[in-house]
Computed example of a mutant assay.
Amino acid sequence: MRTWPGLAAIGAGLIHLGSAPEAPPVVLAVLVLVGGAELLWGVAALGQPVPPAPVGAGVALMGVALLTAEALLLPPAAAQRGSEVSFGLSTGAVLGAAALDLALGGLLALHLGRGRPQAARQGALRFLVAAGAAAAAVAFVTIQSLAGTSSGGTMPMH
Rank of each mutant, 00 (worst) to 15 (best):
G36S: 10
P156C: 08
H111Y: 12
A135D: 01
T154D: 09
A135T: 11
A69R: 05
G36P: 06
A71R: 02
L31D: 00
L100Q: 00
L95E: 10
L66I: 13
A53Q: 12
V64K: 05
L112M: 13
L33T: 13
Q48Y: 03
F127D: 07
L112Y: 05
V30L: 10
R116I: 14
A69E: 07
T68Y: 08
G11D: 01
A9F: 05
A45K: 00
F127T: 09
A23Y: 00
G36A: 09
S150Q: 14
Q118F: 07
S86N: 12
L128M: 13
P25S: 07
L73W: 11
P54S: 08
A12R: 00
R121M: 11
G36R: 06
G13K: 02
P5T: 07
A12M: 05
G11H: 01
L104N: 06
W4H: 12
R114V: 09
A71H: 05
T149V: 04
T91C: 08
A139Y: 04
V32Q: 03
L100M: 11
L125A: 15
V59K: 07
L17E: 05
A71I: 04
L28W: 14
A9N: 00
V26T: 15
F127E: 06
P51L: 02
L28E: 12
L40G: 12
A133Y: 10
M157E: 13
L95W: 09
R126Q: 14
A139H: 08
P156Y: 09
H158I: 13
F127W: 04
P25E: 09
W4R: 15
L74M: 14
T3C: 03
V141E: 02
T91W: 04
A77Y: 01
A37T: 13
A109S: 12
P24Y: 06
L95C: 11
G96N: 00
L66M: 15
S90P: 04
R2K: 10
P54Q: 08
V138K: 01
L112Q: 12
L102K: 07
A78D: 09
G106K: 01
F140H: 11
L46I: 10
S145L: 09
A119T: 12
L72E: 08
L74V: 15
V55S: 06
V59E: 03
L128D: 08
R116P: 04
T68V: 10
A78E: 08
A12N: 02
A136E: 04
